[in-house]
Structure formats: structure tokens, C-alpha cells
């Protein structure tokens, strides 16, 4: 009986040792791959930083009309964000290669899932970019028009328009990323409906007289603004 127990223990030990012996090269390969990845990341970061600085990437982003990218993270310039994005991409690829060295089956499943998800990420990025641009354009249009109509709360209205579009954009992007499912749609519908209802109630009941006075004042100022003046 003791011999049987001894044999089983030895077999188990053999399996474990064999398993560890089989696993160790993979771990070593993972460590080497991660080390190479980190080195590559440092090199790419330096090269990319130099390149983006030489082409004035921050200025280009501002000229393309996406200064809001910087606004999302005020301490970081768009070029720094681009460098980080590339770095994390390299690190992700390195980790996938390392995991592949450990277990090929697991990695191929991960890669398949990842590639299936990429179109959603691309769609979300496009939605975010278009939404940001639209929010900025509409906010600026509203601000300039409101100032030229002598509306005192021009900035507030412009900010309201901007955030309405941004919230709509965020909801659409999250839907593309399949995060939150119906909750996002429902939350957005409730939030949007709530805002509209609140505004309607505020205008219809609470601020009826104030709105009326504002419009009267506005109307009077429109009547008198260019009296007798021909610009051309």
C-alpha cells in the first residue's frame, strides 16, 4: 500500500515537474517578449515624439478643428495622447504574443474576439470624432448668432447645445462599443426627455413672465438697432 502511495506521489511530482518544465520556457519567452516590447515602446516613443514635434502635430490637430481632444485631458497635449495610444497598442500586441508563448489555444481565442470587436471600436471612434466636431461647430454657430442677436445668455445656450450633442455622441459611442446595452439607450432617453420636459415646464410655467419680458426687450432692440443705417 505504501508502495502504491509512493508511486502515486512520484507520478504526481513527475507530472508537476514536467508541467513546470514545460511551462518555464513559455514564462521565460513571455518575460523576454515583454522586455523587448518595453524596449521597443521606449524607442518608438522617442522616435514618435520627435516626429510629431517636427510636423507640429498639436498645431495640426487644432487646425483640423479638434482642440476638444486636448480639452478632454487638459494636462496632456494631443501628441502625448497619440504617443500613449501607440505605446499601449505595442504593449497589447506584446502581451498577446507573450500569452501565445504560454498557451496558443487561449491566445487564438483572444485574438479572434479582439478582431471581432475592432469594427465596433472603429465605429465608436468615428462617432466620437464626428460628434465632437458637430458639437463644436453647433456650439460656435449658436454662440455667434446669439451674440449678434444680443441674447445675454449666449454662452450658456451655446454650452447647453454643446453638451446635448456630446451626451448624444457618448450614448451612440457606448452603444457601438456594446457597453451597457439597453441601459445606455434608456438612460439617454430618460435624461434627454427629462431635460426637454424641465425646459418646457420652466418656460411654460415658472419663467413665463421673464421669457415674455425678454422677448419684448429683444423685439424692441431689434426694431431700433439699425434705425436709419445703411451699411452698403
Amino acid at each position: 500500500m505504501w508502495e502504491q502511495i509512493h508511486g502515486l506521489v512520484l507520478q504526481a511530482s513527475d507530472r508537476i515537474v514536467t508541467g513546470i518544465a514545460n511551462f518555464l520556457p513559455g514564462v521565460l519567452a513571455l518575460i523576454v517578449i515583454i522586455a523587448i516590447t518595453v524596449m521597443l515602446t521606449v524607442i518608438v516613443r522617442m522616435a514618435l515624439r520627435r516626429f510629431l514635434r517636427s510636423v507640429d502635430f498639436d498645431g495640426m490637430v487644432a487646425r483640423w478643428g479638434f482642440p476638444e481632444i486636448a480639452e478632454w485631458s487638459p494636462k496632456h497635449s494631443p501628441s502625448l495622447m497619440a504617443i500613449r495610444l501607440v505605446n499601449w497598442g505595442i504593449i497589447l500586441i506584446g502581451i498577446l504574443m507573450g500569452v501565445n508563448a504560454l498557451d496558443a489555444t487561449l491566445t487564438s481565442m483572444l485574438v479572434v474576439r479582439l478582431f471581432e470587436y475592432i469594427p465596433h471600436v472603429v465605429a465608436a471612434i468615428i462617432v466620437l470624432a464626428v460628434g465632437t466636431f458637430a458639437a463644436r461647430f453647433l456650439a460656435r454657430s449658436v454662440l455667434i448668432s446669439a451674440v449678434n442677436m444680443r441674447i445675454q445668455s449666449a454662452k450658456l445656450i451655446s454650452l447647453g447645445v454643446k453638451w446635448m450633442v456630446m451626451v448624444l455622441t457618448a450614448a451612440m459611442a457606448l452603444e457601438q462599443l456594446q457597453i451597457g446595452g439597453q441601459i445606455v439607450t434608456l438612460s439617454f432617453a430618460i435624461l434627454f426627455g427629462g431635460i426637454v420636459l424641465a425646459l418646457a415646464l420652466a418656460l411654460g410655467l415658472g419663467s413665463k413672465e421673464m421669457v415674455s419680458r425678454t422677448w419684448e426687450k429683444q423685439d424692441q432692440s431689434e426694431d431700433t438697432k439699425d434705425e436709419g443705417l445703411q451699411h452698403l
Binding site: L143, V147, N148, R150, A154, S221, K225, G228
Partner: peptide
């Protein structure tokens, strides 16, 4: 010799200065 009230024009400029500085 028409009379022109410049006040609305100056007010619009001041409103512009308060709101359009970023632009």
C-alpha cells in the same frame, strides 16, 4: 440729418467681448 442711437451697437460689442473672447 438722421439720428442714430449708437448704444445698441456698443452694447453688442460689449456682449461680444464677454462671450467671443475665445474665438
Amino acid at each position: 440729418n438722421p439720428t442714430i442711437d449708437i448704444k445698441p451697437m456698443v452694447e453688442k460689442f460689449r456682449l461680444g467681448f464677454a462671450n467671443l473672447q475665445e474665438i
